[in-house]
């Protein structure tokens, strides 16, 4: 299950929420974080997610790889914005408070720094909550959750099937590529593009053919056990909503509504402290 989910089973209130709740919350939260550039709300969201992380007993080192990855992206994103559009803040906020110059058109303004602060907060508002979802949602429950939020069960189940068979296919790919390497198929970069394509085919064609056999078996096994019999199905891993589930969803809905309200009050997506 190391592919998509990084489920860490620990007893916590976050783990006890149903997968469907967490999925709905993730969507509401992400919309809220996406819609607003209101610094006050953007500052609240990371604080809130930090609190949730503590509640969930997921430790920083459990997610440090993804956090590091995100940090690199965030820095890169900020650098590029400054490189290509050093006065973006000025256009946005309509004022110009120069601080110091780095030469040429690269004059650092308070507006630009404030814009970068918003950008950083935006990352901090949206990424940790995704990691939290990935770490606290049992993959087995995920398909049930999708179905609960209205996705057709055949579609929802195909997600579960992908989670189930991807490791098998990876293993098979590994075995096939070893056997083909023994026949002299090389996958190194030293070769020409044409040769590399031919090598890839020598591994992929057997993989695809044997996967076709597998798909036939799986689809037979599923229909022999009644998959597709009814319009609905129940889920072994599905769970009932409790008061906490409703509370969590209400909280996230409130965040989204706050984002919408702030957009209206600010007369745009940005909160402008320079306008005073």
């Amino acid at each position: 299950m190391r592919n998509l989910f990084n489920y860490i089973d620990r007893p916590s209130p976050i783990h006890r929420l149903t997968g469907a709740t967490k999925l709905v919350c993730l969507l509401l939260w992400s919309f809220a974080a996406m819609l607003t550039y209101d610094t006050r709300l953007l500052a609240l969201l990371p604080l809130l997610s930090m609190g949730l992380f503590m509640l969930s007993r997921i430790r920083l080192r459990d997610v440090r790889f993804m956090l590091g990855f995100t940090a690199v992206f965030m820095v890169l994103n900020n650098l590029l914005v400054f490189l290509f559009s050093p006065q973006h803040g000025v256009t946005l906020f309509g004022t110009r408070h120069e601080l110091f110059s780095l030469g040429g058109r690269y004059v650092v303004t308070a507006e630009q720094l404030f814009y970068h602060l918003n950008l950083v907060l935006k990352y901090l508002a949206s990424i940790p909550i995704v990691l939290l979802f990935v770490c606290t949602t049992n993959p087995s429950e995920f398909a049930a959750s999708l179905n609960r939020v209205g996705v057709k069960y055949s579609v929802a189940y195909s997600v579960a099937l992908a989670l189930r068979y991807i490791p098998d296919i990876q293993r098979e790919y590994h075995d096939i590529s070893q056997a083909q390497q023994a026949r002299g198929i090389e996958m190194t970069r030293r070769q020409s593009l044409f040769k590399r394509l031919r090598s890839a085919a020598a591994i992929l064609i057997p993989l695809i053919l044997s996967s076709m056999d597998r798909i036939e078996t799986i689809s037979n096994a599923m229909s022999l056990r009644g998959f597709g019999k009814n319009k609905k199905r129940t889920w072994y891993m599905g769970r009932r909503f409790t008061g906490w589930d409703f509370a969590a969803m209400a909280l996230c809905l409130a965040l989204l509504l706050a984002a919408l309200a702030l957009n209206r009050i600010n007369g745009g997506r940005f909160w402008n402290p320079f306008a005073a």
Binding site: S140, R164, D168, T217, I218, A221, R233, T234
Partner: peptide, 23 residues
Amino acid sequence: DDQFIGLTVAEDIAFALENDCVA
């Protein structure tokens, strides 16, 4: 291997019941 559809043992055993809408 291929007829093991569920992600875990319990889910695979329950598969037919789920499709039968047993709650």
